[in-house]
């Protein structure tokens, strides 16, 4: 048994390991290392089926934030929390709607900017919402000729 450089060997391993962990956390886990920045907004939906934590929030097809939380509030509505990137202003009459990418793709939240000059601040609530369209619902309406 010969003397080996324990420190070098251990350091080598730790470096590789930490790089691997950083890779999956930042690239795949979307861990925001640099504080991320952004502010929180809420919206109440009648139906938030299909939206998940981590779903994107878009304006005009550009991602401006992510869904951070989904829970049921006291009036049995889905209370969805977003984190919106810094520098993006959302007016208090903006409309949040749940849309689907493609016919059966994943759900995302689209925000249609409003015309008011009141800008929502951290913790604010988007009042106007449009719930997700239930495809089954739609099909059955079509079948029974209501559309």
């Amino acid at each position: 048994m010969k003397k080996f450089d324990v420190e070098l060997a251990a350091g080598f391993f730790l470096l590789i390991g930490i790089l691997a962990l950083a890779f999956i956390s930042i690239k795949l886990g979307k861990l925001e290392v640099l504080g991320g920045g952004g502010y929180a907004l809420y919206a109440e939906f009648e139906k938030a089926g299909g939206v998940k934590v981590g779903s994107s929030v878009e304006i005009a097809g550009v991602e401006i934030g992510k869904v951070k939380s989904i829970r049921l509030d006291s009036n049995y509505q889905a209370l969805v929390g977003f984190v919106i990137n810094k520098g993006i202003n959302i007016q208090d009459d903006a409309i949040a709607s749940i849309k689907t990418k493609g016919l059966i793709g994943e759900k995302y939240v689209q925000i249609t900017p409003g015309g008011s000059d009141k800008i929502l601040s951290n913790g604010g609530k988007i009042r106007e919402t449009e719930s997700s369209i239930d495809i089954e619902d739609l099909i059955s309406k079509y079948v029974y000729g209501k559309v």
Partner: peptide, 13 residues
């Protein structure tokens, strides 16, 4: 405690 998560991360990548 230190090594196993790092090994798992390497394994994942």
């Amino acid at each position: 405690i230190i090594v196993f998560p790092l090994l798992a991360a390497i394994y994942d990548v």
